[in-house]
Each structure stands twice: as structure tokens, then as C-alpha cells.
Amino acid sequence: MKRFFMMLLAGAMTLGFAVPAAAQTAMTVEGTAVAQPLYVSESGVTMAPVRETAGLLGYRVVWDKESRSVTISDGTLSLSFAPGADAYTSRGRTRQLGMAPELKEGVLYAPAEIYSLYYPVTLTQNDSGLTLTALSKEGLEQVTGIIEDAAMYNLVLRLEDGTLRVFGKENADVSAAEGLLLGSTVTVYYRTEAPRAAVKIVTQPAG
């Protein structure tokens, strides 16, 4: 009897973990549903078709036959990666995300989070799936620097020329799974009309 209840509990736990993963397999980009099927990897990472997702965001996708790698560009920032390699390179720096891009039936898939990690794009999740939304480019500016302080409401950056910039981060979308760490490099997006209020903060890979 005890063994029966243990098996029943294990089954319930398995079902409990399967439901959230299934709910993540739908995604909307800029108000349009992604037509190609998404899937969730064994490690729980939602994988999205690269060319379709980037295209819906208005980004350019280029496939390099010689290096067998792909580059996504929004006109300002480029991101390169190759199937089978957990290595995502931008601005000469490479980071690992815990999941390599994969080719499935001729379609290249990559973690859906790459867009919010590298670009001015927000990623939200609810019961219906994932939503990617690009920030309006009108009046959108950016600056990159090293974190000198990351208090509860403010972020202090040291720029390349040594000057300090202070941003309010209370309402900013933060793409940093490990949090905002002192000494790390981040890119801050803000509006021209409100230069002290960060709208998105993106951590850059170390190196």
C-alpha cells in the first residue's frame, strides 16, 4: 500500500511539472502568433523558430554557410550563434544560456529569451504562453556602462569616459537572471524625454 501511494505521488509530481511546460509552447510576437510550433527542451527552456520570430520583430537574419552560423541584427546590435553550440556572441563577447540552438526538420530553434536578453524587447509569460514585444524605437536611446551601485530604486553606471550616469530603475524591465551585480556591464535603454528613467536594463556577457 505504501508503495502504491509513493507511485501515485510521483505521478502527480510528474504531471504537475508537465503542465507549465506545455503552456509555454505558444508565443505571440508583436501581436502576431508564431505559426511554427515551439517546444520546451528537457531542461525547461522554451525554444522558438529563429527566422520567423526575428522576422516578426523586424530583425534581419543571415545564415553563413561556411561557419554554419546565423546572425540576427536589429540594425544596431548583432547576435551570432550556431546549431549545437551553447555560445551566443554579441559585441565580441560570448555567453552561455544553458541551451544550444537546435535544427529540427530544417528549422533553426533558439531560446526565446535571447530577444529580451540582447535587444530592447520585453518577454512576458501567462497561462496562454509567451509574448515578445519590442520597445518603440521613437525617442529610444541607450548607453552601456559598468554598475557602480544598484540601490533599490537607482542604478549608477560608470561610462567608458569615466563619467557617472544615474538612472531610476523602479519601472524598468530587467533582463538579468542573476540580478544587477556590482562591476557587471549593462546596457540601459531610456527615452529622450526622460533621460533619468530606465525603461529596460540588459546585462552584457563578461569578458
Rank of each mutant, 00 (worst) to 15 (best):
A33P: 03
R95D: 12
S78F: 00
D74F: 03
L108V: 11
F81T: 01
W63L: 11
A87P: 00
I72R: 13
R60A: 13
L103M: 15
M47Y: 06
R68I: 03
S90M: 05
Y39T: 01
G106C: 09
A48P: 02
A54T: 01
S67I: 02
G84I: 12
T94G: 02
L97F: 05
L97K: 06
R95I: 10
I72T: 15
S43V: 12
S41Y: 09
E52K: 05
T94R: 09
S73D: 09
V70G: 02
V70P: 00
A82L: 07
T94F: 06
E66M: 08
T94L: 08
T28R: 09
P37V: 01
A33N: 13
G75V: 04
S69A: 15
G98E: 07
V34A: 10
A82W: 00
K65V: 08
E66Y: 07
T89Y: 09
A85H: 13
M47T: 01
A26R: 14
F81C: 01
Y88A: 07
E42Q: 15
V61I: 13
S67L: 09
V40C: 12
L103Y: 12
E42T: 14
K104E: 10
G75P: 08
A54Y: 00
R95P: 00
S69K: 10
L77G: 01
A54C: 03
V61H: 13
S73T: 15
G98H: 08
G106Q: 12
A87I: 02
I72C: 14
V107S: 08
P101R: 03
V62F: 10
T89G: 09
P101L: 06
G84H: 11
G106M: 13
L77K: 14
M47W: 04
M99P: 01
A100M: 05
V50G: 07
V34R: 11
G44Q: 03
G55S: 15
S67R: 12
S90C: 01
R68H: 08
L103E: 13
Q96T: 09
R51Q: 12
G75L: 03
Y39C: 04
A35M: 13
V45H: 13
R93N: 09
Q36M: 12
A82R: 07
L79Q: 10
M27G: 01
M99C: 09
A100S: 12
Y39M: 02
V45C: 08
A82M: 06
T32P: 06
L38E: 06
L103D: 12
L38H: 07
K65C: 01
D86K: 00
V45I: 14
L103P: 02
